[in-house]
């Protein structure tokens, strides 16, 4: 049974308000015993593999993007059996309401949510503002690691096509909008990695031809929550020139920051066809015979 959806003014303006919960809502749900009795599963997903262990929301389980969601040998996500085993171990059933939160304005939380969506998990929501907001508000943390009763999760085949783009899909997508969510320095090709992050080994710097540059963090407010619908529209319809109904692909360096933007486009602005290109710049910047554009201009559709 899905847990009731949060109603508030900010969320109700979004296309799919049921995809977000506020810290107040989560605190009240915890208070009412929703996690304890298994109606709600709270998942923390961070960039730092040890952050959960330093303290987390009471009752929250940890899912690590690197060790839990990636397949070790195929450079892909886990398969249906792997995901079912993971979900069961975390006390998640197919009909569970799952709320995900994490560090850095929910980068990795949005990424985890996107992977849950590849498996068609129906009720998965993001905690608006994530870990930092919860802590900034002085809410309770614990280092107690819960041992949930095993969930019941069937083996579901991953359905990549609706929300995941591969390199070939991007090549076939030219003429439709692309959003590059990396930093301006990565977009222009001045650097191939995030400021203050190490060189990732991409051979060339620049962006995919025609991509608009909208760094992911511009969709977030100061406190790490998503901006209001009005502000998001100004950003994506105004600056990025998207039109309602567009078929959009977002990308970054490895697909994690673009999951945050994917969430905004899909659930907050209501684009039906928006995909995350998780190969992103680490693949595109190294691939043989794919076109790139250097500099601040978007560039034009490459000749076939």
């Amino acid at each position: 049974m899905p847990y009731p959806v949060e109603q508030n003014e900010k969320f109700s303006a979004y296309a799919s308000p049921e995809r977000l919960v506020s810290t107040e809502w989560l605190a009240a749900a915890l208070e009412s015993g929703a996690v304890a009795d298994g109606k709600l599963v709270v998942v923390e997903s961070d960039e730092d593999v040890l952050l959960y262990e330093t303290g987390h929301i009471p009752g929250a389980v940890k899912i690590d993007w690197h060790t839990d969601l990636n397949d070790e040998v195929t450079r892909d996500y886990v398969d249906g059996a792997g995901f079912a085993a993971l979900a069961q171990a975390k006390g998640i059933s197919r009909d569970s309401t799952v709320v995900i939160y994490g560090d850095k304005s929910n980068w990795w939380a949005a990424y985890a949510l996107w992977v849950f969506t590849l498996f068609g998990h129906e009720d998965v929501r993001l905690l608006d503002g994530g870990r930092d907001k919860w802590i900034a508000e002085g809410r309770e943390l614990t280092t107690d690691v819960p041992t949930p009763a095993a969930g019941e999760y069937p083996v579901i085949d991953r359905n990549d096509a609706p929300i995941r783009a591969f390199k070939e899909d991007v090549l076939a997508h030219f003429g439709n909008p692309l959003i590059d969510v990396r930093s301006p320095e990565e977009y222009t090709g001045q650097r191939t990695h995030m400021p203050a992050y190490p060189e990732e080994g991409a051979l060339r710097g620049g962006h995919i031809p025609t991509a608009a540059s909208i760094p992911w963090a511009r969709a977030a407010a100061e406190d790490g929550t998503y901006k209001t619908r009005q502000d998001l529209e100004a950003l994506y319809f105004g600056e990025a020139d998207l039109k309602p109904g567009d078929d959009v692909i977002a990308y970054c360096r490895i697909g994690e920051r673009s999951s945050h933007t994917w969430f905004a486009l899909k659930y907050l602005l209501g684009f039906e066809n928006v995909r995350n290109y998780d190969g992103s710049w680490t693949e595109w910047g190294n691939a043989v015979r794919v076109p790139i554009v250097k500099g601040a201009e978007r560039g034009s559709v490459p000749a076939k």
Binding site: D48, V49, L50, L51, E53, T54, D103
Partner: peptide, 9 residues
Amino acid sequence: PAEAPTTRG
């Protein structure tokens, strides 16, 4: 920072 336990470790 405390919120970077892996680096601190």
